[in-house]
Design a protein around this nucleic acid. Structure first.
Lengths: 218, 218
DNA sequence: TATTGTTTGAAACATTCGTTTAACTGGGGG
DNA sequence: CCCCCAGTTAAACGAATGTTTCAAACAATA
């Protein structure tokens, strides 16, 4: 019984290795070898490599969405719609509050970034199918907090935001080292997230770009 | 003779396919097949797949750095140091003015992102050795354009910016698809870059964050 | 203890990959 | 004319991959 820890060991190892080198570059033999588990265990417990990748995401995203939905519930009971800073801070707090199994935030963020660039179709589709509703809920609140923005402008700026977050959190370790070297300062994750909020909120408030003043010169 | 266009066809096809699905996911057989070239041609003309990847990037980065260095020369002759928008717009214009930047832009950005988070071995070394000086030059000008920022704040915001750019450009294809689905609109790269500039510049101008008001609640 | 369903183990299978080999082609000088 | 050599071609090689197989080990139940 107890769903022996084979499954857990596979998930832990796969999560770390995927984040380190990507999906295609991480073989099942590397995973099962490092996890001290038989090669066939992956296909037995998960069915395929694709399914393993999705399981790695689900283990983090399921509790995250639970927390986040609860936070959104509370925001929606409020009299007036939350403003930008409130919304971003809520997202930040939720992110930090998720126990993050073991491999912490940066690992998952790296995975999320990879899911955007690699894995052509299936990963994006999986994320959309399983967690799209929560995302849509957030977007709805976000839209109310940025009513002055044209639809297209908001769409792109939301992804600019996502980029800042994903990239920064992905490179957390490297950036912390650089911060310790360049400026003599130890930085906690909370500090970085705290710095992110005004940067993103202010970027959102920038005047939408007027029409093309880009020349095609050399 | 005329160095038959085999080399060019390989570079063109590889560039497009790398941008589409990444490096490990793109096989030499796919490249040579689509380019209607013999499989052995890659190893004959370039030596290896690694060398082909480097050649694809060199074809983009060599003219890019030439253009960008020229632009930086001009900025440095100016009486006073360029402001934020000027600096970012210069970078954007240079990026777009490079002829080969149709598909290879996202490839380069993806690699830049990978070089930041992980080693990626040979590619990071190659980039640093060949194009590091130009990057350092830009960073220097950027510091002068944001003198009002505390050192730490600028450090982190520069990486927030880098994250927006790298992530957005890395995921260009995915984002374009989503933009076409969510809002019925075909988006050109120029439009995105143009939207990025005010977003980033305004984020840079946000008031530096005061002291901690984050609670550690659940 | 005997039986059942689940999990693990070592090995094999079928593909696919990057790379190498060797034979062939078509011209341009000796 | 012959040789040479850059360029191309088809075929094969060796290694690595995801997946499947089937017997053994295990846990729980009757």
């Amino acid at each position: 019984m107890a769903q022996s820890d084979t499954v857990t060991r596979i998930l832990d190892t796969a999560e770390a290795l995927f984040a380190e080198r990507g999906f295609a570059e991480t073989s099942l033999r590397t995973i099962t070898g490092k996890a001290r588990v038989n090669l066939a265990a992956v296909n037995y417990h998960f069915g395929s490599k694709k399914a393993l990748i999705q399981a790695v995401f689900a283990r983090y995203l399921d509790p995250f969405c639970a927390h986040f939905n609860a936070a959104l519930d509370e925001l929606e009971t409020q009299q007036q719609a939350p403003d930008l800073e409130t919304l971003l801070t809520t997202l930040a707090k939720t992110t930090l509050s998720v126990p993050a199994s073991k491999g912490s935030l940066s690992v998952f963020m790296r995975l999320l970034g990879l899911a955007y660039t690699q894995a052509q179709g299936h990963m994006r589709r999986y994320l959309q199918d399983h967690y799209g509703d929560t995302f849509v809920r957030f977007v709805h609140l976000f839209r109310e907090a940025t009513q002055e923005l044209p639809e297209a402008e908001r769409f792109w700026r939301m992804h600019f935001m996502l980029g800042s977050v994903v990239f920064t959190m992905s490179s957390l370790d490297a950036l912390k080292d650089m911060a310790a070297a360049d400026l003599n300062e130890k930085t906690r994750v909370q500090d970085i997230v705290q710095r992110l909020v005004p940067f993103l909120a202010e970027g959102m408030r920038a005047d939408p770009v007027d029409t093309a003043l880009f020349t095609a010169d050399a």
